[in-house]
Design a protein around this nucleic acid. Structure first.
Lengths: 210, 210
DNA sequence: TGGGGTATCATAACAACGTGACGAAAAGAG
DNA sequence: CTCTTTTCGTCACGTTGTTATGATACCCCA
């Protein structure tokens, strides 16, 4: 049996996501309400609950969208003969561009600053693609012998941590205005250069225990 | 003229802050309500509004407390003859210990993941002390000639960004379990080692513009 | 010693929020 | 044309942050 045809299709879903991102970018995360985003696209709260299940579901969808964009951007980045320079460029031209261009998606998807129940589990799948793209870049650096004895996974984790921290600091307006890209490039280049330094442990590392 | 003596003194303020931190650490930021924290310490919501003005005021006070602890910890850290090793230790033993030991304070004060109106302005003063402590450490590294041509401010910003990113990643459970401290030390040592590498710009930096 | 005056208290009321439940509506099946 | 099924719009419920409303406790002064 078939019932009433649904008029809350994926087009309204896309409109809802777009409206939600626009609202958050303009006025912050705290003003986003289900009623408001529903009114924004001319529908009712029922559409949100039919399409996303809950407000959290809408935020998870936004986070997944963030990782889609990030993964696509990193996959589209061209490569040159310098794997280390390519990696730095991936951080500056891909990660930074995304974080600054879509601050709300960055906060929801990457930082997971939802203040809501666990969404990490539903976003790990979405983040896998983007992180895999990063790891292929790091693998090229390792094949060039510029990663020391580090694991690709560890180096990728460390590189991503620096990118995420830089983005958080810049989004808070804590970087010298106009110098943001230079600081990004300076920091990422220093980290990647440090990867290639053979003696990477400081003297106290052997005597410190967990 | 004097009126009724206030019985919501700073002792109840401390109790409220402690209860709020305990609640957030236990159940997350989203379950924190003014009524709940008031009931927790056996008083009413009026105490919160008399002492902190609003829920945001209470969170700002929590953030300020975070920076107090962080600044005190970094000031108490001993120094040795190796400024670079001292800096790495400050990240691992001070910043990481604080972030992992007080995740809610880290999220509120450092990450400012409040989902609420601007609190950055009220926290910059509180953060100044802790950041100054970091800069004195970085200054020693620069005086040892291990900072390249970097500014102390820039290097401090980059070092802090890596610490903040590492803490965010670890708090999300994305680091290999049991390997967290090693990864922290590995990443921070790489960044500091990269600071000392004379050629810190990759080949594409000169041809990229904002 | 006893009444204002005043500042602070506890409480209730208000608007907005997320969300589940209810009846109405719309389309195919017989 | 009627029935069944599915989805829709709307409303009610509990909870949230915050603000008015009396009530209360203390000091000053006569």
């Amino acid at each position: 049996m078939v019932g009433r045809p649904r008029e809350h299709d994926e087009r309204t879903a896309a409109a809802l996501l777009e409206a939600a991102e626009r609202t958050i970018d303009a006025a912050g995360l705290e003003v986003l309400s289900v009623r408001r985003v529903a009114d924004e696209v001319g529908t009712t709260t029922r559409a949100v609950y039919s399409l996303f299940g809950s407000k959290n579901g809408l935020l998870v969808a936004l986070g997944a969208r963030a990782f889609e964009m990030l993964g696509a951007a990193i996959a589209a980045q061209a490569t040159t003969g310098s794997p280390d320079a390519d990696l730095v460029d991936a951080g500056v031209a891909v990660f930074r561009r995304f974080a600054i261009g879509h601050p709300s998606l960055f906060r929801i998807g990457v930082q997971q600053t939802l203040g809501s129940p666990r969404v990490a589990g539903q976003l790990t799948n979405a983040s896998a693609g983007a992180f895999a793209g990063l790891e292929t870049r790091v693998t090229r650096v390792k094949e060039a012998g510029l990663l020391g004895r580090r694991t690709v996974r560890d180096a990728s984790c460390e590189f991503h941590s620096l990118c995420e921290g830089l983005a958080a600091v810049e989004l808070r307006g804590l970087m010298t205005p106009g110098e943001e890209e230079r600081i990004w490039r300076d920091a990422l280049a220093a980290l990647v250069a440090g990867f290639a330094v053979p003696v990477l442990q400081t003297h106290r590392s052997a005597t410190t225990k967990e």
